[in-house]
């Protein structure tokens, strides 16, 4: 394994600006989850910060719909890997700006609009391992709370979680570096050779 940087959440602007695409990190502290419905809700209903039961400013939003086991009143996280981040591309830039997030955890990377929002608002995109849901659930120490559970269901609710040494890699940083974009342009060259004809334009 490659050496990694330990980070405590909430993150400061300095923390985030010091990170570079390619850095391996381990996050410890409180994070929140949110996926498709939470993003749509935040943008359409625009709840005020005080209506949200958790502190989002400085926090990290994990694109994750966890698998929860209920036994009586007790809830336990069984499996909790990332979901595809690109689905919330149309919302993410505004959510980062409105709620002061300092980090996103997900998989697959995001688009140009989010990359610009990361630069403008000093926020960073952490990529964790898709499908490694048991491994990652082991790094979640505690459920601290949940919001919108009845309305949205367990997968789409916002969970407030305490994590310890949660592993991820910075793939999009505050300086405009984007590993996904680099890989896509590299594979596009090979793809154009296979397809033949006129070379396709590099991905903008």
């Amino acid at each position: 394994m490659v050496a990694s940087i330990n980070l405590a959440v909430p993150l400061s602007t300095e923390d985030v600006r010091s990170l570079k695409a390619g850095d391996f990190v381990q996050l410890s502290g409180d994070i929140v989850t949110g996926r498709d419905r939470i993003h749509k809700f935040l943008l359409e209903q625009k709840p005020r910060v005080e209506e949200i039961p958790f502190q989002l400013s400085g926090s990290v939003l994990y694109h994750c719909g966890p698998l929860i086991q209920k036994s009586g009143e007790e809830q336990k996280i069984i499996a909790a890997g990332p979901t595809t981040s690109m689905r919330v591309e149309m919302y993410a830039a505004d959510v980062i700006k409105e709620y002061g997030l300092k980090g996103i955890i997900g998989k697959g990377g995001m688009g140009r609009k989010t990359l610009q929002a990361l630069q403008k608002n000093s926020c960073v995109y952490f990529h964790t391992i898709g499908g490694a849901a048991v491994y990652l659930a082991e790094r979640i120490k505690k459920i601290l709370g949940v919001w919108k559970l009845d309305e949205f269901g367990a997968a789409e609710a916002m969970w407030h979680l305490e994590v310890e040494n949660f592993p991820a890699m910075v793939t999009m940083d505050t300086h405009g570096n984007d590993i996904h974009h680099e890989i896509e342009n590299m594979s596009l060259k090979k793809f154009a050779e296979f397809i033949g004809g006129e070379d396709r334009q590099a991905v903008k």
Partner: peptide, 21 residues
């Protein structure tokens, strides 16, 4: 490496490999 470890953990603890079943 993490993926292979996760597969083993899922099998050993009888937990779903991925949260998206």
């Amino acid at each position: 490496g993490i993926i292979l470890e996760n597969i083993k953990m899922g099998r050993d603890t009888a937990r779903p490999i991925c949260q998206d079943t």
